[in-house]
């Protein structure tokens, strides 16, 4: 467990330093050293604030991300096209629906990922979370029924379980 925490801190420091380098664009030794120092200080601050934990920097989910994000982007594109057709339709054929879906993920990160994925796909928003019940507002009835059938839920659980 100790080793896992150490790996998390190192990875966080690496990410922060890479981010600093990308935003800076100047690579003189003094500036790079300053960047490295600020990355280390940020990690120390994060440890002190207890945000460098599996919730704040979930490195376990890294490999799952590689397959999950392309799938999510395809879903987003599909549903955004659906919303586009509705917006441009002369009679505005909406049928707003409120529903409750159950998240089957085990960790809070998993439930948060599911809720955020629902919100990110146009046409459905997570309105409230209580425990593992997500209240969802859908622009059309089919969107709500789609979520209730649980395809996205299974996909997120798979993503979460791919440790």
């Amino acid at each position: 467990m100790r080793g896992m925490a150490m790996r998390r801190y190192l990875s966080l420091a690496g990410f922060l330093f890479a981010f600093w380098l990308a935003l800076s664009g100047h690579y003189t030794p003094v500036l790079v050293a300053a960047g490295a120092a600020s990355a280390v200080i940020c990690v120390l601050a994060a440890i002190r604030m207890r945000v460098a934990d599996p919730e704040g920097h979930p490195i376990e989910l890294f490999w799952g991300t590689i397959t999950y994000f392309p799938w999510l982007i395809r879903e987003i594109a599909k549903s955004a096209w659906g919303v586009t057709k509705i917006v441009l339709h002369p009679s505005l054929p909406i049928s707003p629906t409120l529903t409750v879906v159950r998240a089957s993920q085990k960790t809070t990160v998993g439930v948060a990922t599911y809720a955020n994925s629902i919100t990110l796909t146009p046409g459905t928003i997570t309105v409230g979370v209580s425990g593992k019940n997500l209240t969802v507002h859908a622009l059309v009835r089919d969107g709500a029924l789609d979520l209730e059938s649980g395809g996205m839920d299974r996909r997120v659980s798979q993503f979460e379980g791919s440790v």
Binding site: I94, P96, T97, L98, V100, H137, R141, A144, E148
Partner: peptide
């Protein structure tokens, strides 16, 4: 909200 259907209790 303007609702066509409330399925919260389904």
């Amino acid at each position: 909200p303007v609702l066509a259907e409330d399925r919260r209790g389904h």
